[in-house]
């Protein structure tokens, strides 16, 4: 077959276009998922609230009514109470919520995972949490002066086994 210069040019153009389209979108345009002049506060933990109702000693009559293999001296309903949490930044509420227990029997832990973009610099950060049956107030509070750098990922965790809030 005769060599057709126009056809060869056409092929080169097609390959060049292929190269350009693949090569460009493989790593561009850049996307900015987070403003570079801000810092992030990430609040996340998993914590189990107290049982909703206290365990109760059963009366001998009640025990007798239960099937023989189900007999026990105390009745402990599994349902948990929600946990209340509050985060305050420089005196303003950043986040406040009541976290319900998870699971279909509502006997699981309460969970939270939230992120907030904040301005860098010095801040007073306060975190409070209620994990008791009281109706108001908090059982754990931590207040600290913090210095946030741009792009910093500052994490607020709550760890019962480590005595409460952890800031880092």
């Amino acid at each position: 077959m005769a060599i057709r210069p126009l056809a060869i040019v056409g092929q080169l153009v097609a390959y060049a276009a292929f190269m350009a389209v693949i090569g460009y979108f493989a790593a561009a345009p850049a996307y900015s998922p987070f403003p570079s002049d801000q810092a992030q506060i990430k609040l996340s933990f998993r914590h189990t609230g107290p049982p909703k109702v206290e365990c109760r000693r059963l009366t001998p009559e009640e025990i007798a009514k239960l099937a023989p293999n189900m007999r026990r001296a105390v009745d402990c309903p599994r349902e948990r109470l929600p946990i209340a949490v509050e985060v305050e930044l420089d005196g303003k509420i950043l986040y406040a919520a009541t976290l319900p227990p998870t699971g279909i029997w509502k006997d699981g832990s309460s969970k939270i995972y939230e992120t907030f973009a904040v301005l860098p610099g010095r801040h007073t950060l306060t975190a409070r949490l209620r994990d008791s049956r009281r109706a108001e107030g908090f059982d754990h509070t931590r207040r600290e002066e913090i210095e946030l750098r741009p792009r910093q990922n500052f994490v607020i965790e709550f760890r019962g086994d480590r005595g409460g809030f952890i800031f880092e």
Binding site: M19, I22, G23, F25, A26, A27, A28, A30, Y31, S32, P33, F34, P35, S36, A39, Q40, R151, Q152, N153
Partner: peptide
């Protein structure tokens, strides 16, 4: 393409710093 425009990495991951620029592979 590979020689002219090689595939490169971003700076190493650091979970204590939020990612602000991602050169996405849009495909």
């Amino acid at each position: 393409m590979s020689l002219m425009h090689p595939a490169l990495s971003h700076p190493p991951a650091d979970l204590d710093r939020v990612v602000t620029t991602a050169n996405l592979d849009w495909y």
